[in-house]
């Protein structure tokens, strides 16, 4: 069943809401293989099921039917505890609205996943400092989320998602709330991650962002309607019209 080249897979993955005439097929029998190190962009109109698919892949929602495999292990039938442990170790989430904990500083936000994973306070702090330094926010570690710009907040959220060195980074409209300059900040960070071999699945409605990926999947009414390989996304950021920073 599993293809061990793919770090993340789904087979017949479905998520339905309602019953009878009011049945909504948010995600409808989706088959997906994401090889390790690939940056996958999922595009589609609002309400086509992109975010639901991402939630299903990350175990935030349970499928109505189908399977999800992560690193060769089936995860869709895990209980909540098992899913939480899987997220803790193998998945990093990035959201459009950042979802940083308001009363925690940038460093404390980044520390949190490591603390939840049972790492020592010192190790968690060191890891957070390294990550914030890597994303260029070494001088903002004590700032609270509302004291940071949108781009900086999203970079903190990405650092937090990377805290436990996840196998896959799932990003839901990561630039949806950002202006052009902040979008470039985030995309540069993603480019660095891709260069470092990080697997990334991102949902976006922005073609310019999608064009930086290795592969683009289009969705409509819960189904995949297109799957395109993009030639060499790395290093193209500066060439993107309207995104020159």
């Amino acid at each position: 069943m599993t293809d061990f080249d793919a770090v993340l897979q789904s087979r017949g993955l479905s998520r339905y809401h309602g019953q009878g005439e009011s049945l909504v097929r948010a995600v409808d029998e989706v088959d997906l293989d994401v090889p390790a190190g690939q940056t996958l962009a999922i595009m589609g109109p609002s309400g086509c099921g992109k975010s639901t698919l991402l939630h299903l892949l990350g175990g935030l929602e349970r499928p109505t039917d189908g399977e999800v495999w992560l690193a060769g292990r089936r995860i869709d039938h895990l209980n909540e505890r098992g899913l939480a442990r899987m997220r803790r170790r193998s998945i990093g989430f990035v959201f459009q609205n950042f979802h940083l904990v308001e009363e925690l500083s940038a460093r404390e936000n980044v520390e949190l996943p490591a603390l939840l994973a049972g790492r020592s306070s010192r190790a968690a702090r060191r890891r957070a400092a390294d990550l914030l330094e890597r994303i260029g926010l070494g001088d903002r570690t004590r700032h609270l989320p509302w004291e940071l710009s949108g781009g900086q907040r999203q970079r903190v959220a990405i650092a937090r998602a990377l805290a436990n060195e996840p196998l896959v980074l799932l990003a839901d409209e990561p630039t949806g709330n950002l202006d052009t300059a902040a979008t470039i900040e985030v995309l540069r960070l993603f480019a660095d991650l891709r260069a470092a071999g990080q697997t990334l699945v991102m949902v976006t409605h922005d073609e310019r962002v999608a064009s930086t990926a290795d592969r683009l999947v289009s969705m409509h009414d819960g189904r995949f309607v297109g799957d395109t390989r993009l030639a060499g996304g790395t290093g193209r950021l500066g060439d993107l019209i309207g995104l020159d920073g």
């Binding site: 909540e80 803790r88 989430f93 940083l100 939840l116």
Partner: peptide
């Protein structure tokens, strides 16, 4: 609720 939801996306179990 929002903070706890974030903690869960980061791997906190419902029991925790």
């Amino acid at each position: 609720r929002p903070t706890m939801a974030i903690a869960r996306t980061l791997g906190a179990t419902p029991g925790q």
